[in-house]
Write a protein that binds this DNA or RNA. Sequence first.
DNA 1: GCGTTCGTAGCAAGCGCTTTCTACTTAGAA
DNA 2: TTCTAAGTAGAAAGCGCTTGCTACGAACGC
Lengths: 349, 349
Amino acid sequence: MTVTLADVAARAQVSPATVSRVLNGNYPVAAATRERVLKAVDDLDYVLNGPASALAAATSDLVGVLVNDIADPFFGIMASAVQSEIVGPGGRAGGERLAVVCNTGGSPERELTYLTLLQRQRAAAVVLTGGAIEDEAHVAAVAGKLRRLAEAGTRVVLCGRPPVPETDAAALTFDNRGGAMELTRHLLDLGHRRIGYVAGPQERTTTRDRLEGHRAALAEAGVTESDGLVAHGPYDRGAGYAATAELLRSEPELTAVVAANDTMALGACAALREAGLRIPEDVSVAGFDDLPFSVDAVPALTTVRLPLADAAARAGRIAMGREAEPAGGVDVVRGELMVRGSTGAPRGA
Amino acid sequence: MTVTLADVAARAQVSPATVSRVLNGNYPVAAATRERVLKAVDDLDYVLNGPASALAAATSDLVGVLVNDIADPFFGIMASAVQSEIVGPGGRAGGERLAVVCNTGGSPERELTYLTLLQRQRAAAVVLTGGAIEDEAHVAAVAGKLRRLAEAGTRVVLCGRPPVPETDAAALTFDNRGGAMELTRHLLDLGHRRIGYVAGPQERTTTRDRLEGHRAALAEAGVTESDGLVAHGPYDRGAGYAATAELLRSEPELTAVVAANDTMALGACAALREAGLRIPEDVSVAGFDDLPFSVDAVPALTTVRLPLADAAARAGRIAMGREAEPAGGVDVVRGELMVRGSTGAPRGA
DNA sequence: GCGTTCGTAGCAAGCGCTTTCTACTTAGAA
DNA sequence: TTCTAAGTAGAAAGCGCTTGCTACGAACGC
């Protein structure tokens, strides 16, 4: 029925071992023999049995990529970049690896489940992207899983995530705090004092770090008028809309809204516009991430650009052992403030 | 080192066969025995060896999802929906399946490569999303691969893709032609006659179908002024921008631009605005797909909504055998015209 | 000219699981 | 009481591949 290694061996008149070695290319095989084997593979239209191979070799060519939401370009971009880099270590043809994209939906349980599933598959590597959940028990559980994975030979890399203690997983974390601080400083410099903050979901490191940066900038400038102006919600458009409406209600004198990410910022814009406010004449708006659509918003969104693709590509390379881990295991990736049309001086400034 | 089935069996004082049966749940095991086994699994922190299991059972719990570009929300949304549906047929716990998202980048070779890789993994199912490439040789090659996959027991479902001849893969195709036709009719009804069309890449079924629909609407209305006004490019923002700039050069009297998708429409808007034209007062713009950001564009984008998530979810269910295949193997999914602010009557109409 | 070494290829022992077939209980039927 | 049929568990034969070790020539050095 299905063609096996043995069939190929028979046709090429060599032993199965030789065929395996030709296919894996990690053992010297005479050129003539190799040719013969390759021809037989071709003739028979042979396709290696992945599970069998993984079982015998105790490792598969699967690479897990955990994301919170693959429908969100933030994660899509990272997943894409990781995937483009996960060719085999030697760069050989046939060093093909498959990216397994796991959508956790931000759920701790699913994160753990997927980690187990990846462990079950004997994944070659795992890349965890996006912010982590701050629950202590969950962090410990994740750390445990990551340790087991590492023990089993799976390389673990974190991208856009804080390092996990008690683990030697390499981490590329985004400087969310610094970026947020710079962004809020920009608004303060423009003269804003009543700045609403549309935050992400609670218990997420990303949410906390960005909010912290915002608050640090406010504190630094001695601005207290904005202190209570924070509304939380999921990282999506609807939440941005709702949170902004809420902020507007509690503080109609708002002159600026900072959103925890670009998607929420878009929702914020919609809410403001619906309230009859112009951007940036009446209220300035800023986002975070600089996703592709942000430059096309009208007015173009002031935001903090995160080098998502670069960082994820690097994470992919580290996962494949094609690039050294950052010294100390952690590297902080900075964002860049992109000042565009959605922010301006406040009314009467 | 790693815990195996045998270890669990020893601890539970049963045979490996029994443990396997408890874990797979497809054979009667006395409740007491099951408990004992489950406890041993827990005590030992046992994780099944996926490859070994796949080898023995001749099928894995991997589901392939082929997409053109995972960074594009169009595909991200579909991938996400497929993933959310691929639990096991029985709905049992442990019926966990892993979605392998394969980014073809629109390249025929990579499409074939991924199909081979999925075959190698003995994937339980494969879902191909997005438009297909029209090259005859390639279609034949894909058909061949799909046939082999089907032979090996892999369920194949197409989502947003035309059926593949000589194959019994179920297909959920989008009515691109019909949607495009309706969209252009809308513009014609408004009074537009010089309508530029920003098309996708050549040789893609999606591109062709949408363009055909556009042309059919023009022909139907007897409008010939727009006949040459087509510019092709990849399905991204930059191409939309460039194509629109080009159209503007060749026909400055343009009153409307129809883009092959929303992303390109955004680029088109940027190009128009840069040329000092207002939307929709000077030029109307329309997109296709109704991606989440489209409603937030300013003005909100008139477009054709495709039920991406629904269709993909259904594809996922069909792939899992949890829903019947469409009668005749093919089902056409219609889009819905969403008229919004980006289209209006032409100047002086 | 003979021992060594290098370059190749084969043997065979698993890798950890599933599943068929067999076997043993126990309970119900006659 | 004896026979049969459920119900449940085990033995063992693979699934298709990798890889350590062995073996055989040929080329080489002395």
